[in-house]
Design a binder for these strands. Sequence first.
DNA 1: ACCTGAACACCGTTCAAGT
DNA 2: ACCTGAACACCGTTCAAGT
Lengths: 199, 199
Amino acid sequence: MSPRNPGQRAGLTRVRVVGAARDLLAESGALEALTMRALAARLEVSPNALYSHVSSKDGLVDEILDDVLAEVAAPADSGAPAAGLHALMVSTYEVLLAHPELVPLYLARQGARGPNAQRLGDVMLELLARAGVEGERAREALRVLIVYTIGFAAFATRAPVAEPGTTGTQLEENFHSGLRWLLMGIELGARGAGAPAPA
Amino acid sequence: MSPRNPGQRAGLTRVRVVGAARDLLAESGALEALTMRALAARLEVSPNALYSHVSSKDGLVDEILDDVLAEVAAPADSGAPAAGLHALMVSTYEVLLAHPELVPLYLARQGARGPNAQRLGDVMLELLARAGVEGERAREALRVLIVYTIGFAAFATRAPVAEPGTTGTQLEENFHSGLRWLLMGIELGARGAGAPAPA
DNA sequence: ACCTGAACACCGTTCAAGT
DNA sequence: ACCTGAACACCGTTCAAGT
Protein backbone atom coordinates (compact mmCIF):
# COMPACT_ATOMS: atom_id res chain seq x y z
CA MET A 1 0.00 0.00 0.00
CA SER A 2 2.39 2.69 1.23
CA PRO A 3 5.69 3.25 -0.60
CA ARG A 4 7.56 3.15 2.70
CA ASN A 5 7.59 1.21 5.93
CA PRO A 6 7.78 2.94 9.29
CA GLY A 7 11.35 4.11 9.80
CA GLN A 8 12.11 4.76 6.13
CA ARG A 9 12.64 8.41 5.13
CA ALA A 10 10.91 10.32 2.36
CA GLY A 11 13.51 13.06 1.93
CA LEU A 12 11.19 15.80 3.16
CA THR A 13 12.58 19.20 4.19
CA ARG A 14 10.96 22.34 5.49
CA VAL A 15 11.46 24.17 2.20
CA ARG A 16 10.07 21.25 0.19
CA VAL A 17 6.93 21.25 2.35
CA VAL A 18 6.43 25.03 2.07
CA GLY A 19 7.12 24.94 -1.66
CA ALA A 20 4.62 22.17 -2.26
CA ALA A 21 2.04 24.11 -0.25
CA ARG A 22 2.57 27.17 -2.47
CA ASP A 23 2.26 25.03 -5.59
CA LEU A 24 -0.94 23.53 -4.27
CA LEU A 25 -2.42 26.96 -3.68
CA ALA A 26 -1.24 28.31 -7.03
CA GLU A 27 -2.61 25.39 -9.03
CA SER A 28 -5.98 25.12 -7.36
CA GLY A 29 -6.48 28.84 -6.80
CA ALA A 30 -8.69 28.11 -3.83
CA LEU A 31 -7.59 28.33 -0.21
CA GLU A 32 -9.82 25.44 0.78
CA ALA A 33 -7.60 23.25 -1.38
CA LEU A 34 -4.70 23.72 1.02
CA THR A 35 -5.27 20.95 3.51
CA MET A 36 -2.59 19.09 5.38
CA ARG A 37 -3.91 15.85 3.94
CA ALA A 38 -3.88 17.08 0.34
CA LEU A 39 -0.38 18.45 0.86
CA ALA A 40 0.74 15.11 2.25
CA ALA A 41 -0.78 13.29 -0.71
CA ARG A 42 1.10 15.57 -3.14
CA LEU A 43 4.35 14.82 -1.32
CA GLU A 44 3.47 11.13 -1.10
CA VAL A 45 3.77 10.96 2.65
CA SER A 46 1.24 10.31 5.38
CA PRO A 47 -0.47 13.45 6.76
CA ASN A 48 1.26 13.37 10.12
CA ALA A 49 4.71 13.28 8.49
CA LEU A 50 4.34 17.02 7.81
CA TYR A 51 4.46 17.79 11.51
CA SER A 52 8.12 16.80 11.59
CA HIS A 53 8.90 19.90 9.49
CA VAL A 54 6.13 22.38 10.26
CA SER A 55 4.60 23.20 13.62
CA SER A 56 1.03 23.56 12.38
CA LYS A 57 -1.03 24.57 9.40
CA ASP A 58 -1.15 28.17 10.65
CA GLY A 59 2.63 28.31 10.91
CA LEU A 60 2.91 26.99 7.40
CA VAL A 61 0.55 29.64 6.02
CA ASP A 62 2.35 32.42 7.91
CA GLU A 63 5.62 31.43 6.30
CA ILE A 64 4.09 31.38 2.82
CA LEU A 65 2.61 34.86 3.25
CA ASP A 66 5.82 36.45 4.44
CA ASP A 67 7.90 34.72 1.76
CA VAL A 68 5.87 36.29 -1.03
CA LEU A 69 6.61 39.80 0.24
CA ALA A 70 10.26 39.24 -0.62
CA GLU A 71 9.20 39.88 -4.25
CA VAL A 72 8.17 43.47 -3.53
CA ALA A 73 10.68 45.86 -5.12
CA ALA A 74 11.96 48.60 -2.81
CA PRO A 75 12.23 51.93 -4.69
CA ALA A 76 15.51 53.73 -5.33
CA ASP A 77 16.63 56.00 -2.50
CA SER A 78 17.16 58.93 -4.84
CA GLY A 79 13.68 60.01 -6.00
CA ALA A 80 10.95 62.05 -4.37
CA PRO A 81 9.49 60.33 -1.31
CA ALA A 82 5.91 60.50 -2.57
CA ALA A 83 6.98 58.86 -5.83
CA GLY A 84 8.82 56.22 -3.82
CA LEU A 85 5.75 55.49 -1.71
CA HIS A 86 3.60 55.32 -4.80
CA ALA A 87 6.04 52.90 -6.45
CA LEU A 88 6.29 50.77 -3.31
CA MET A 89 2.53 50.40 -2.96
CA VAL A 90 2.14 49.67 -6.66
CA SER A 91 4.81 46.99 -6.42
CA THR A 92 3.04 45.49 -3.40
CA TYR A 93 -0.26 45.63 -5.25
CA GLU A 94 1.24 43.89 -8.27
CA VAL A 95 2.83 41.18 -6.14
CA LEU A 96 -0.53 40.56 -4.49
CA LEU A 97 -2.23 40.38 -7.89
CA ALA A 98 0.44 37.95 -9.05
CA HIS A 99 -0.63 35.65 -6.21
CA PRO A 100 -4.40 36.07 -6.22
CA GLU A 101 -4.92 32.85 -4.31
CA LEU A 102 -3.04 34.33 -1.34
CA VAL A 103 -5.00 37.56 -1.07
CA PRO A 104 -7.87 36.04 0.94
CA LEU A 105 -5.25 34.69 3.33
CA TYR A 106 -3.65 38.12 3.76
CA LEU A 107 -7.13 39.44 4.47
CA ALA A 108 -7.98 36.73 6.96
CA ARG A 109 -4.66 37.20 8.75
CA GLN A 110 -4.74 40.97 8.03
CA GLY A 111 -1.29 41.18 6.55
CA ALA A 112 1.88 39.32 7.26
CA ARG A 113 3.98 39.76 10.34
CA GLY A 114 7.29 38.14 9.38
CA PRO A 115 10.71 39.64 8.62
CA ASN A 116 9.83 40.71 5.08
CA ALA A 117 6.71 42.54 6.24
CA GLN A 118 8.84 44.25 8.87
CA ARG A 119 11.39 45.34 6.30
CA LEU A 120 8.74 46.88 4.03
CA GLY A 121 7.27 48.78 6.95
CA ASP A 122 10.67 50.25 7.77
CA VAL A 123 11.19 51.38 4.18
CA MET A 124 7.79 53.07 4.20
CA LEU A 125 8.54 54.89 7.43
CA GLU A 126 11.82 56.16 5.99
CA LEU A 127 10.04 57.51 2.92
CA LEU A 128 7.37 59.13 5.05
CA ALA A 129 10.01 60.77 7.22
CA ARG A 130 11.67 62.25 4.12
CA ALA A 131 8.23 63.56 3.10
CA GLY A 132 8.00 65.35 6.44
CA VAL A 133 5.58 62.87 8.04
CA GLU A 134 6.84 61.44 11.31
CA GLY A 135 5.74 60.06 14.65
CA GLU A 136 2.09 59.25 15.15
CA ARG A 137 1.08 60.71 11.80
CA ALA A 138 3.59 58.47 10.06
CA ARG A 139 2.14 55.37 11.71
CA GLU A 140 -1.32 56.59 10.68
CA ALA A 141 -0.25 57.00 7.07
CA LEU A 142 1.46 53.60 7.12
CA ARG A 143 -1.70 51.82 8.21
CA VAL A 144 -3.86 53.72 5.77
CA LEU A 145 -1.61 52.82 2.85
CA ILE A 146 -1.36 49.14 3.80
CA VAL A 147 -5.08 48.77 4.41
CA TYR A 148 -5.82 50.50 1.14
CA THR A 149 -3.47 48.30 -0.85
CA ILE A 150 -4.52 44.93 0.56
CA GLY A 151 -8.17 45.93 0.43
CA PHE A 152 -7.90 46.95 -3.19
CA ALA A 153 -6.05 43.80 -4.14
CA ALA A 154 -8.93 41.88 -2.58
CA PHE A 155 -11.38 43.70 -4.81
CA ALA A 156 -9.23 43.24 -7.88
CA THR A 157 -8.79 39.50 -7.39
CA ARG A 158 -12.44 38.83 -6.69
CA ALA A 159 -14.21 36.70 -9.26
CA PRO A 160 -14.73 39.18 -12.15
CA VAL A 161 -18.22 37.84 -12.73
CA ALA A 162 -19.38 39.86 -9.73
CA GLU A 163 -19.26 43.16 -11.62
CA PRO A 164 -19.34 42.32 -15.31
CA GLY A 165 -18.49 45.82 -16.61
CA THR A 166 -15.17 46.04 -14.77
CA THR A 167 -11.98 45.03 -16.49
CA GLY A 168 -8.62 44.46 -14.82
CA THR A 169 -7.02 47.57 -16.32
CA GLN A 170 -9.95 49.71 -15.15
CA LEU A 171 -9.39 48.42 -11.64
CA GLU A 172 -5.70 49.21 -11.89
CA GLU A 173 -6.47 52.80 -12.94
CA ASN A 174 -8.83 52.79 -10.01
CA PHE A 175 -6.11 51.71 -7.63
CA HIS A 176 -3.71 54.34 -8.95
CA SER A 177 -6.14 57.23 -8.67
CA GLY A 178 -7.19 56.29 -5.14
CA LEU A 179 -3.55 56.00 -4.17
CA ARG A 180 -2.82 59.43 -5.62
CA TRP A 181 -5.74 60.83 -3.66
CA LEU A 182 -4.33 59.34 -0.48
CA LEU A 183 -0.74 60.49 -1.03
CA MET A 184 -1.92 63.97 -1.94
CA GLY A 185 -3.83 64.13 1.31
CA ILE A 186 -0.88 62.81 3.30
CA GLU A 187 1.45 65.40 1.80
CA LEU A 188 -1.01 68.25 2.26
CA GLY A 189 -1.41 67.17 5.87
CA ALA A 190 2.34 67.32 6.35
CA ARG A 191 2.64 70.78 4.80
CA GLY A 192 -0.37 72.27 6.58
CA ALA A 193 -1.34 72.06 10.24
CA GLY A 194 -2.05 68.40 10.95
CA ALA A 195 -4.91 66.60 9.22
CA PRO A 196 -7.06 68.40 6.67
CA ALA A 197 -10.29 69.88 8.01
CA PRO A 198 -13.37 67.65 8.07
CA ALA A 199 -15.54 67.86 5.00
CA MET B 1 -31.50 10.66 24.76
CA SER B 2 -33.05 13.15 22.33
CA PRO B 3 -35.90 15.41 23.52
CA ARG B 4 -37.93 14.47 20.46
CA ASN B 5 -38.76 11.45 18.36
CA PRO B 6 -38.68 11.56 14.57
CA GLY B 7 -41.79 13.41 13.37
CA GLN B 8 -42.06 15.72 16.37
CA ARG B 9 -41.42 19.44 15.70
CA ALA B 10 -38.99 21.74 17.48
CA GLY B 11 -40.64 25.03 16.51
CA LEU B 12 -37.71 26.16 14.42
CA THR B 13 -38.07 29.03 11.94
CA ARG B 14 -35.68 30.69 9.55
CA VAL B 15 -35.42 33.80 11.71
CA ARG B 16 -34.81 31.75 14.85
CA VAL B 17 -31.97 29.91 13.13
CA VAL B 18 -30.35 33.11 11.81
CA GLY B 19 -30.79 34.82 15.18
CA ALA B 20 -29.18 31.96 17.05
CA ALA B 21 -26.29 32.01 14.60
CA ARG B 22 -25.74 35.73 15.26
CA ASP B 23 -25.87 35.13 19.01
CA LEU B 24 -23.36 32.35 18.70
CA LEU B 25 -20.95 34.60 16.79
CA ALA B 26 -21.46 37.53 19.17
CA GLU B 27 -20.89 35.46 22.30
CA SER B 28 -17.85 33.55 21.12
CA GLY B 29 -16.32 36.35 19.09
CA ALA B 30 -14.64 33.80 16.86
CA LEU B 31 -15.85 32.78 13.44
CA GLU B 32 -14.66 29.21 13.93
CA ALA B 33 -17.30 28.92 16.66
CA LEU B 34 -20.07 29.15 14.09
CA THR B 35 -20.52 25.55 13.05
CA MET B 36 -23.75 23.96 11.98
CA ARG B 37 -23.34 21.40 14.73
CA ALA B 38 -22.78 23.99 17.47
CA LEU B 39 -25.72 25.97 16.16
CA ALA B 40 -27.89 22.86 16.24
CA ALA B 41 -26.78 22.11 19.80
CA ARG B 42 -27.71 25.65 20.89
CA LEU B 43 -31.16 25.20 19.35
CA GLU B 44 -31.42 21.68 20.77
CA VAL B 45 -32.02 20.03 17.44
CA SER B 46 -29.98 17.58 15.43
CA PRO B 47 -27.52 19.16 12.96
CA ASN B 48 -29.41 18.19 9.84
CA ALA B 49 -32.62 19.81 11.12
CA LEU B 50 -31.11 23.20 10.16
CA TYR B 51 -31.24 22.32 6.49
CA SER B 52 -35.03 22.52 6.58
CA HIS B 53 -34.70 26.29 7.12
CA VAL B 54 -31.40 27.27 5.55
CA SER B 55 -29.92 26.10 2.27
CA SER B 56 -26.33 25.89 3.48
CA LYS B 57 -23.87 27.42 5.90
CA ASP B 58 -22.77 29.93 3.24
CA GLY B 59 -26.35 31.04 2.69
CA LEU B 60 -26.77 31.49 6.41
CA VAL B 61 -23.65 33.65 6.69
CA ASP B 62 -24.68 35.75 3.67
CA GLU B 63 -27.97 36.54 5.33
CA ILE B 64 -26.30 37.55 8.60
CA LEU B 65 -23.89 39.89 6.82
CA ASP B 66 -26.56 41.70 4.85
CA ASP B 67 -28.87 41.97 7.87
CA VAL B 68 -26.28 43.92 9.84
CA LEU B 69 -26.03 46.58 7.14
CA ALA B 70 -29.63 47.55 7.91
CA GLU B 71 -28.17 49.34 10.97
CA VAL B 72 -26.18 51.79 8.85
CA ALA B 73 -27.77 55.25 9.09
CA ALA B 74 -28.35 56.99 5.75
CA PRO B 75 -27.47 60.72 6.01
CA ALA B 76 -30.04 63.50 5.58
CA ASP B 77 -30.63 64.58 2.00
CA SER B 78 -30.09 68.25 2.85
CA GLY B 79 -26.37 68.63 3.67
CA ALA B 80 -23.30 68.86 1.49
CA PRO B 81 -22.62 65.64 -0.43
CA ALA B 82 -19.05 65.26 0.86
CA ALA B 83 -20.34 65.58 4.43
CA GLY B 84 -23.02 63.00 3.63
CA LEU B 85 -20.46 60.57 2.25
CA HIS B 86 -18.23 61.10 5.24
CA ALA B 87 -21.16 60.45 7.59
CA LEU B 88 -22.25 57.38 5.67
CA MET B 89 -18.80 55.79 5.76
CA VAL B 90 -18.38 56.65 9.44
CA SER B 91 -21.73 55.04 10.19
CA THR B 92 -20.72 51.94 8.24
CA TYR B 93 -17.39 51.88 10.06
CA GLU B 94 -19.13 52.12 13.43
CA VAL B 95 -21.60 49.38 12.56
CA LEU B 96 -18.70 47.15 11.56
CA LEU B 97 -16.88 47.94 14.81
CA ALA B 98 -20.06 47.14 16.74
CA HIS B 99 -19.92 43.65 15.23
CA PRO B 100 -16.20 42.89 15.32
CA GLU B 101 -16.79 39.17 15.01
CA LEU B 102 -18.36 39.73 11.57
CA VAL B 103 -15.55 41.80 10.09
CA PRO B 104 -13.40 38.81 9.11
CA LEU B 105 -16.45 37.39 7.36
CA TYR B 106 -16.99 40.62 5.39
CA LEU B 107 -13.33 40.42 4.43
CA ALA B 108 -13.50 36.80 3.40
CA ARG B 109 -16.64 37.41 1.35
CA GLN B 110 -15.40 40.91 0.40
CA GLY B 111 -18.53 42.77 1.39
CA ALA B 112 -22.18 41.78 1.35
CA ARG B 113 -24.23 41.46 -1.78
CA GLY B 114 -27.81 41.46 -0.42
CA PRO B 115 -30.57 44.08 -0.62
CA ASN B 116 -29.17 46.25 2.19
CA ALA B 117 -25.75 46.40 0.56
CA GLN B 118 -27.44 47.36 -2.70
CA ARG B 119 -29.37 50.15 -1.01
CA LEU B 120 -26.23 51.65 0.55
CA GLY B 121 -24.46 51.59 -2.79
CA ASP B 122 -27.32 53.49 -4.39
CA VAL B 123 -27.25 56.15 -1.67
CA MET B 124 -23.51 56.59 -2.18
CA LEU B 125 -23.91 56.97 -5.93
CA GLU B 126 -26.56 59.66 -5.40
CA LEU B 127 -24.26 61.60 -3.08
CA LEU B 128 -21.37 61.28 -5.51
CA ALA B 129 -23.56 62.55 -8.35
CA ARG B 130 -24.48 65.61 -6.29
CA ALA B 131 -20.75 66.16 -5.71
CA GLY B 132 -20.21 66.19 -9.45
CA VAL B 133 -18.77 62.68 -9.68
CA GLU B 134 -20.61 60.42 -12.11
CA GLY B 135 -20.20 57.50 -14.46
CA GLU B 136 -16.98 55.52 -14.30
CA ARG B 137 -15.35 57.91 -11.83
CA ALA B 138 -18.29 57.47 -9.49
CA ARG B 139 -17.94 53.69 -9.55
CA GLU B 140 -14.21 54.14 -8.90
CA ALA B 141 -14.87 56.34 -5.89
CA LEU B 142 -17.52 53.92 -4.61
CA ARG B 143 -15.11 51.00 -4.62
CA VAL B 144 -12.31 53.03 -3.08
CA LEU B 145 -14.53 54.16 -0.21
CA ILE B 146 -15.94 50.68 0.48
CA VAL B 147 -12.54 49.03 0.35
CA TYR B 148 -11.08 51.66 2.60
CA THR B 149 -13.86 51.34 5.18
CA ILE B 150 -13.95 47.55 5.42
CA GLY B 151 -10.17 47.37 5.35
CA PHE B 152 -9.86 49.86 8.16
CA ALA B 153 -12.49 48.14 10.24
CA ALA B 154 -10.44 44.96 9.85
CA PHE B 155 -7.40 46.75 11.26
CA ALA B 156 -9.36 48.30 14.09
CA THR B 157 -10.93 45.04 15.20
CA ARG B 158 -7.70 43.08 15.11
CA ALA B 159 -6.46 41.83 18.44
CA PRO B 160 -5.03 45.01 20.05
CA VAL B 161 -2.04 43.10 21.34
CA ALA B 162 -0.56 43.25 17.83
CA GLU B 163 0.40 46.90 18.17
CA PRO B 164 0.47 47.73 21.87
CA GLY B 165 0.81 51.50 21.48
CA THR B 166 -2.38 51.91 19.48
CA THR B 167 -5.61 52.69 21.25
CA GLY B 168 -9.09 52.51 19.78
CA THR B 169 -9.58 56.27 19.67
CA GLN B 170 -6.26 56.72 17.90
CA LEU B 171 -7.41 54.29 15.26
CA GLU B 172 -10.67 56.16 14.89
CA GLU B 173 -8.81 59.46 14.37
CA ASN B 174 -6.77 57.50 11.88
CA PHE B 175 -9.85 56.36 10.00
CA HIS B 176 -11.26 59.88 9.92
CA SER B 177 -8.11 61.52 8.60
CA GLY B 178 -7.63 58.90 5.88
CA LEU B 179 -11.25 59.32 4.88
CA ARG B 180 -10.82 63.09 4.69
CA TRP B 181 -7.76 62.56 2.51
CA LEU B 182 -9.76 60.35 0.19
CA LEU B 183 -12.79 62.65 -0.05
CA MET B 184 -10.59 65.65 -0.63
CA GLY B 185 -8.94 63.82 -3.52
CA ILE B 186 -12.29 62.73 -4.94
CA GLU B 187 -13.64 66.29 -4.85
CA LEU B 188 -10.48 67.78 -6.32
CA GLY B 189 -10.67 65.21 -9.08
CA ALA B 190 -14.26 66.24 -9.83
CA ARG B 191 -13.38 69.96 -9.95
CA GLY B 192 -10.18 69.55 -11.94
CA ALA B 193 -9.55 67.56 -15.11
CA GLY B 194 -10.04 63.91 -14.14
CA ALA B 195 -7.73 62.27 -11.63
CA PRO B 196 -4.93 64.21 -9.93
CA ALA B 197 -1.54 63.97 -11.59
CA PRO B 198 0.70 61.03 -10.60
CA ALA B 199 3.11 61.74 -7.78
C1' DA C 1 -43.25 20.16 6.02
C1' DC C 2 -40.23 19.32 9.73
C1' DC C 3 -37.55 16.53 12.37
C1' DT C 4 -34.32 12.23 13.87
C1' DG C 5 -30.82 8.48 13.09
C1' DA C 6 -27.30 7.07 10.60
C1' DA C 7 -23.95 7.69 7.50
C1' DC C 8 -20.53 9.76 4.01
C1' DA C 9 -16.57 12.09 2.99
C1' DC C 10 -13.85 14.90 4.83
C1' DC C 11 -10.69 18.00 8.44
C1' DG C 12 -6.20 19.10 11.88
C1' DT C 13 -3.57 16.93 15.16
C1' DT C 14 -1.59 13.49 18.56
C1' DC C 15 0.32 9.20 20.19
C1' DA C 16 2.85 5.02 19.96
C1' DA C 17 5.88 2.44 17.47
C1' DG C 18 9.46 1.41 13.97
C1' DT C 19 14.39 2.33 12.03
C1' DA D 1 15.27 12.58 13.64
C1' DC D 2 11.90 11.19 10.46
C1' DC D 3 8.33 8.47 9.09
C1' DT D 4 3.87 5.13 9.34
C1' DG D 5 -0.50 3.26 11.40
C1' DA D 6 -4.12 4.16 14.00
C1' DA D 7 -6.92 6.99 16.33
C1' DC D 8 -9.32 11.24 18.39
C1' DA D 9 -12.30 14.85 18.04
C1' DC D 10 -14.22 17.26 15.02
C1' DC D 11 -16.53 19.31 10.25
C1' DG D 12 -20.74 20.17 6.34
C1' DT D 13 -24.10 17.68 4.11
C1' DT D 14 -27.23 13.88 2.38
C1' DC D 15 -30.42 10.09 2.59
C1' DA D 16 -34.06 7.35 4.37
C1' DA D 17 -37.55 7.12 7.52
C1' DG D 18 -41.03 8.77 10.85
C1' DT D 19 -45.32 11.80 11.88
